[in-house]
């Protein structure tokens, strides 16, 4: 075991897979010699060479198309989109092309591509760096979307994503890159995609979260405990497909749910999760399922992040509403 930040765990996962499988290629804008704008690919080009870890011209759509073509030649591409706000440039390559390849080829061609990309607020980035756009990809059949919240999960989920033979978007929350360290085994291990984890057990209310909101939910749960409310915190880890079994098990125990996301209320995944719960467990609910989400405006100017981003106080407020319904 080693103590790693999430970014170190990600680098470790990339190194592991570059070593394991010669078809793994890591590339993007400044991921080579520079080691990535967040140092996620630090040292990898030196270790594996310019044929395996390389820079690309500055064009996200081109990077997407390059990935599709390399996958057609039997490679296992792990491209990076520097910030996920830039995904609009590559939307056709991702949702219009690689997501559909297996289906449109009648199952004859796969796309084992893992697109890594940072996102997320709280670090005062300039425009279109922090936007939560996971909902756009999660709505595309053929895609999987993974969002880790801890160093341990990041490594295991990234290794699984790279080994998956279908395309995965792997979103890395910028605020979680270096905010804390966690135990990460040095050897390789995997975490199944599509499996949530109960990060804290509780019996009074279920908080379903992903990304940075997992930590806000855990903090809210600590505060709520002081008031005698035991909150169970589920970290989805994969937001498409979602782990409906883990969610339902918890709902049947607590009978009250709040879904927490950083994205705007009209975006993200919360609505989908709520719909699934009401279809499958309405008789287990003591109160409506409520949402914690950002306001439905464009992502905040950086100085307004504190008042705009959802935080643990917003979660406590919603929990009190469902508990006192």
């Amino acid at each position: 075991m080693a103590q790693m930040t999430m970014i170190q765990a990600i680098t470790d996962a990339l190194r592991t897979e570059l070593k394991n499988d010669e078809n793994v290629l890591v590339y993007g804008e400044d991921v080579g010699k520079n080691g990535g704008v967040f140092r996620a690919t630090e040292g990898l080009q030196d270790e594996f060479g310019e044929e395996r870890v390389f820079d690309t011209p500055l064009a996200e759509s081109g990077i997407g198309g390059l990935s599709i073509g390399l996958a057609l030649q039997g490679y296992r591409p792990v491209p990076e989109i520097q910030f996920f706000g830039f995904v609009y440039e590559a939307m056709d390559a991702i949702n219009g092309q690689m997501a559909r390849m297996r289906y449109r080829s009648g199952g004859t061609k796969g796309q084992p591509v893992t697109i890594r990309s940072p996102f997320g607020g709280g670090v005062h980035t300039p425009e279109l760096h922090a936007d939560s756009l996971e909902g756009l990809i999660a709505q595309q059949p053929g895609m999987k979307v993974v969002i880790p919240s801890t160093p341990y999960d990041a490594k295991g989920l990234l290794i699984s994503s790279i080994r998956d033979n279908d395309p995965v978007v792997f979103l890395e929350h910028m605020k979680l890159y270096r905010s804390f360290r966690g135990e990460v085994p040095e050897e390789e291990y995997t975490i199944d995609l599509g499996k949530a984890e109960v990060k804290r057990e509780g019996s009074d209310v279920t908080l379903i979260a992903y990304g940075a909101m997992v930590h806000s939910s855990l903090k809210a749960a600590e505060e709520l405990e002081k008031d005698g409310i035991q909150a169970e915190v589920i970290d989805l880890r994969t937001i498409m497909p979602i782990d409906i079994d883990t969610i339902l098990e918890s709902v049947k125990k607590t009978n009250r749910v709040v879904v927490v996301q950083e994205a705007q209320r009209q975006a993200g995944m919360a609505s989908h999760i709520i719909a699934e719960i009401q279809e499958r467990a309405i008789l287990h609910l003591e109160a409506p399922v409520l949402r914690v989400a950002a306001p439905d405006t464009v992502y905040a100017f950086s100085q307004a992040e504190e008042v705009w981003l959802p935080n643990y106080n917003d979660i406590i407020e919603r929990v009190n509403q469902v508990v006192n319904f």
Partner: peptide, 9 residues
């Protein structure tokens, strides 16, 4: 763009 990828492969 896909052709560029196939060719590089």
């Amino acid at each position: 763009t896909q052709a560029a990828g196939v060719a590089l492969g």
